[in-house]
Design a binder for these strands. Structure first.
Lengths: 121, 121
DNA sequence: GAAAGTGGTTTCCTTTAGGATACCATTAAA
DNA sequence: TTTAATGGTATCCTAAAGGAAACCACTTTC
């Protein structure tokens, strides 16, 4: 029983590691945008609607630290910076797909229960 | 291109729906605990180490609203209340498993890069 | 020479998440 | 009669997340 408990805490920690990387208001949208291909800072800021420069730069830095996104500075004038998903970053796809499927189904479920309230979300 | 964009926003919304349900400091631990079987309020508070009554009650209410957890009041004296995962709640298992696998692998990866820092996390 | 675009950082502010403590009613045991 | 256990709620407080605006250096265009 104690072994089960210890094991279990490790698993919960693992789940939270993943959750920490994916949660926050913008990370998924950024990863989603980069899923279509390489993007520059300004392109991301336009595609991820509503994000400010501060948050974008912070989120990108975190994704870069976790080796999910690669940042490349090009020697142009003025400098351009490219962001792309790393191969490792692409390994998130399975889990993101699962979340997408579950979330879409959940919304349908809620809509069929009480459509009016659900529309407000 | 616009259609792609609209579709994409729906998908991102779906992912965030899922994320909203799973994120927060305690939900995963609660679901994990209930994964072993029915639990009473006090049992949960003991098993989910560190959680206070206010947070536990709030998180349980949210899980109940989303039909992931069922709350049953038993007519004993004093009243006992049982919480259990619904069938729908169990459908989260796939996605939680994916997150667990990814998180465990991610930790190994970080450990092999820079074991000393990683231990601190 | 001014404006606009490149990719940001810094500062300050508001909003939200979470925690500590006290409290509630009920009942059984000591 | 006090204590402990049941399952919570209400209030207040802190910490963290996030947003707005100003600012930076550099270069091209108007």
């Amino acid at each position: 029983m104690e072994k089960v408990h210890t094991e279990c805490k490790g698993k919960i920690r693992a789940i939270h590691d993943t959750l920490d990387i994916l949660s926050g208001k913008w990370k998924i949208a950024i990863i989603g945008s980069l899923g279509f291909g390489t993007r520059r800072f300004m392109e991301l800021q336009r595609e991820v609607e509503g994000i400010g420069a501060k948050m974008l730069s912070k989120e990108l830095r975190e994704l870069e630290i976790n080796d999910l996104v690669k940042r490349t500075v090009l020697d142009t004038k003025p400098v351009t910076v490219e962001y792309q998903l790393t191969e490792y970053g692409k390994t998130l796809q399975d889990i993101i797909d699962e979340m997408m499927k579950w979330g879409e189904n959940h919304r349908k479920r809620i809509m069929s229960e009480s459509p009016k309230e659900a529309e407000l979300i």
